[in-house]
Simulated scan of single mutants.
Amino acid sequence: MTVHAPTKTGFEKWQDGINKAVGDAKWDAWDCEIQTAVNEYNRHLSGTAGYFPLDWHLIKAMMWVESGANNSEWKTKPMQIGVAGDPGMTSLLFGNEGGDLILPPIWKRKLTTGSVRTIPAHNIRAGIGYLLMKMANYEYRSVRSTDTKVYEAAVKPGDSLDKIAKAQGCTVETLKEMNPTAFVLRPGQVLKCQKASVQRVITNWRSISTTLVAQRYNGGGDPNYAKKLDYALSLMRKGKAVLCEP
């Protein structure tokens, strides 16, 4: 009787292919670009509350899962952001989801829909930016301007804090902070104020895990995404690190 080997699952077939990546220089081609990009983001976001430096190995593992050296997109879109049907690039560059707070200033000017789809260094930075955008928590808060001058506003009949704030380029929160006893407004009363506006700010960060990356970056499209990331990370730890210039 002929004994047939058990049919391999899709994940097992993927494992067979990815095992060959260790030691193959093509799969390490973007290591230095990834490290440079991750360092840029870590410097830019280091001052935000609760930010923990991103590990570049996670990004490399994502690229092995997203495309890999044998994929036709490896030399243009290694992180797959910007491919047909993917909303991530638009969300990062043009949406109202916080991408403007995530991107380092120099990359706000450089990244375009065209460059993300054709230049690997831009695709990598867009992918990292989208990942971090989905890992941040945001709130709208009153933020004071760089203009630290204290202005005065005289209360007129019919005025409210909201009306005064709009007229002075201030916010109600700032008026309350600077005039803690102004519970009832009286005509002729003089209030202090500073320029301020309500802006989206990063309040804290989710703790990044392979499961969360699968949910918020991949969107659940691949049920084995987190499992693949874990496996790719384990292979990388066995490989030899690429030396990059500082």
Rank of each mutant, 00 (worst) to 15 (best):
T2H: 15
H4Y: 15
H4I: 12
A5S: 12
P6S: 00
P6G: 03
F11Y: 14
F11W: 13
Q15D: 07
D16A: 12
D16I: 13
N19F: 05
N19S: 14
K20F: 09
A21I: 03
A21S: 11
G23T: 08
G23K: 03
K26L: 02
A29W: 08
A29I: 12
W30H: 10
W30D: 01
D31M: 13
C32Q: 03
C32D: 01
C32I: 04
E33F: 08
E33V: 13
T36W: 00
V38K: 06
E40M: 14
R43Q: 14
H44W: 15
H44I: 15
S46W: 14
S46Y: 08
S46D: 10
G47S: 15
Y51R: 05
I59L: 11
M63D: 07
M63Q: 01
M63V: 00
A69E: 02
N71Y: 02
N71R: 06
S72R: 13
S72N: 13
E73T: 10
E73Q: 15
E73Y: 00
W74V: 01
T76D: 11
T76S: 07
M79S: 12
M79A: 10
Q80W: 06
D86V: 09
S91Y: 11
L92P: 06
F94T: 09
E97C: 07
G98R: 08
G99D: 00
G99M: 14
L101D: 04
I102Y: 05
P104G: 09
P105S: 15
I106A: 11
W107K: 04
K110W: 07
T112C: 13
T112D: 06
S115A: 10
V116I: 03
P120N: 02
A121T: 14
N123K: 02
I124N: 02
I124M: 00
R125N: 11
I128W: 00
L132M: 15
M135E: 02
A136N: 01
Y140D: 06
V143A: 04
D147I: 06
D147E: 15
T148I: 11
K149F: 12
Y151R: 01
K156Y: 12
S160F: 04
L161N: 11
L161V: 10
D162G: 12
K163L: 08
I164T: 09
I164K: 00
Q168F: 07
V172L: 05
T174K: 02
K176F: 00
M178R: 05
N179I: 10
A182N: 03
V184Y: 07
V190W: 14
L191N: 03
L191E: 00
K192N: 14
K192D: 13
K192W: 12
C193Y: 10
C193V: 04
Q194E: 05
Q194P: 05
A196V: 00
S197V: 03
S197K: 15
V198T: 12
V198R: 12
W205R: 00
W205M: 06
W205G: 03
I208N: 04
S209N: 10
T211Q: 13
A214V: 06
Q215T: 14
R216S: 07
R216D: 00
G219K: 08
N224V: 14
A226M: 01
A226F: 02
K227Y: 13
L229S: 00
A232N: 00
A232R: 04
L233P: 02
R237N: 13
R237E: 02
K238Q: 04
K240C: 05
V242A: 10
V242W: 04
L243Q: 14
L243H: 10
L243F: 04
C244P: 04
E245F: 11
E245W: 01
